[in-house]
Write a protein that binds this DNA or RNA. Structure first.
Lengths: 207, 207, 207, 207
DNA sequence: AATGAATGAGCCTTCATTCAT
DNA sequence: GATGAATGAAGGCTCATTCAT
């Protein structure tokens, strides 16, 4: 599957991928138009479907591609294996923000795919997301030093709270900067400050 | 705006609203079809556009209507003004769940509108959401008894954390029950249990 | 169903019907193109589907229309109620030929529909054909005078033979004149001669 | 023409032929897809067109091949040269049925080709059919013992009637079993019984 | 000889919106 | 106010055929 596409010259592959990602990131799955894509990528109608079969599979491919790319990006930043869990979390959040900013369209596409998954590829997409968290959550929570936790605090629940909270925070920023993503870069310092402040409260609560 | 529609007989208004809400809740903004709506509502094509101008303004109207309706529902449950903030939050969550269940389509539409806002009415929709939270957040956080808060905990930030967390939790459940909303009812007790457990950890952290 | 179309002005209806019939008669169901039809009929894409829903239903409508038209044509020639069965059959065959010639495209469409029925409207089309034969076969075989039949000849089987034979003959001519229908007119006398000769043999056999 | 194909290894030839026959028999000429064929036959797109030029010539080749195959099959059953003509005809019908059943796809393809010939190879296909009947009709009608014929019966016309009738009968069964060809096998005895009965009437008529 | 990537016209159908009545 | 016929661009997708390799 997708073999034909993978074998293309780097240049053409890039042209097509870029056109697809921009279109899907911009319009979301339903409104994205294969016509716009082929025009932008300067390829024929037939060949797009020759590569990807149909729109759904194309989208699935893009999600997969995006996740792989983001994964690779994450790997570049090797998290400190030791240290305080909240320090790690803060670091993790910063990395996330940086990557988001380096690949705004990929990020947009991924977010879109997460919240508006086309019904009949939902499970496949969810699997891919699960893989992603399976790889990175352990990195964060491994060797968790629970000795500092207050008595009566269930470590598992505590970490779930932290994760849910991080997600909500990310989303808050996504919504806030929707349509003016470029401004996010300028505000990164401010954001990180706020971010740390939040974490500080959580940390204070759990320790 | 919408005046002609508002002046309709209660019966016709209801028929149209119901048809619209079901369709938009079911298919989302993009895929919702005005054809389906007019067929279901038994009105003519022309009149729908006469009332609402275009699909976008129709959707905007529905969002407004839904928010008003949910607001009214919330007002029925007058939160205890005093008492522990976390007790209030738990109560708030329960009310939310109950209302969600009493108006599943309205809830669906509202969630959809929040996450997939059509670009050119985004700010208008976001305004409406802001009004909503402006009315209810104070209800929860008013007369906040911060005396129990641990020293060094910024009450405002603490409450923001709680709110963000609640939102994330809601979303977690939305995703979990996507496509099988009816099962949520049966699981309500389990959900409330988990909900309380989470809150307990947060509470423990802040007090 | 089809009401909207039926209410059109005679002129427009005719234009559309003509375009449809020519296209379907010419190309058959699968290859007939709605694009060609709308271009020929000078109507918009949307309106064709507004009238008929989809290609299949359009075809079904045309079959129905054609059968009605042919039926009406047949009725104009009131078969002599009495007289020898074979005389009636010969007359019937002549009428058939004449009508075929007066409405070559309708005939073509009908034949096509009979032998290449699109799978999922097959039963509906077959029903319509059954109605047709239900109306006219009795006209021929009513008050059948079997007194002249040779002993041992099962009248029902004999008539079945005659009918099957007539059909085969019709088909033989259809195939023979395929693509040069206009020449059939010139050959009608010759054909009728041959036709009578065949019937004569059958008659001779049965009496 | 077709030389390159004929020179292929038996195995590859068979693979291609089988794939083509199944596809054309199943879908008919128009809807048959060369894509399906090459996938099934495991050959490249280019080579199929290299062998056969285009879809039409491919189909023509298949018709030719099928007719040759059926011819060969017929030859295996050498009709009794003498004996009553109607006995021969009954035997002929039985052979036809048996062969049909032994090669259902070939039969289907041939029937389709007969009734839905693509316009611009129509005459070529009709020629091939003519060859077929030219070979076998004499087999049946040779040494026709007309002594038993009733006076006044033109033997040639009589035989034409019989042939036309046989064709009509075949077609009647084709239509009857359209879409449930496999059931024909179970009904073969019943069919042969009916077949004989019809012939009996004809025979009775002519003798 | 053999491959299969590439083409682009064509397919049927849906859509929000307009406008004469 | 109310109707619904009419528009035609756009949708995803398929197809036989070509051609560089």
């Amino acid at each position: 599957m997708y073999q034909t596409f993978e074998n293309l010259t780097e240049d053409k592959k890039k042209r097509i991928l870029e056109a697809c990602i921009v279109e899907f990131a911009d319009k979301g799955y339903e409104k994205a138009s294969t016509n716009v894509i082929i025009k932008e990528a300067k390829v024929s109608k037939g060949i797009l479907f020759h590569y990807f079969g149909n729109k759904k599979r194309l989208f699935l491919y893009l999600v997969e591609y995006s996740i792989k790319l983001l994964t690779a990006e994450f790997r570049k930043y090797s998290l400190q294996k030791s240290g305080d869990i909240f320090d790690r979390i803060i670091e993790f959040g910063m990395i996330k923000l940086k990557i988001s900013h380096a690949h705004p369209n990929i990020t947009k596409l991924i977010i879109h795919a997460y919240y508006n998954t086309p019904e009949d590829i939902r499970s496949e997409i969810q699997d891919k997301y699960k893989q992603l968290s399976n790889e990175f959550l352990p990195t964060i929570f491994n060797d968790l030093d629970t000795s500092k936790f207050r008595k009566g605090v269930n470590p598992k629940k505590a970490m779930e709270i932290v994760m849910l909270f991080l997600e909500a925070l990310q989303q808050k920023y996504n919504k806030e900067y929707q349509g003016r993503e470029q401004e996010l870069l300028g505000d990164i310092d401010k954001i990180m400050e706020e971010y740390k402040e939040y974490i500080e409260v959580l940390k204070y609560g759990i320790y």
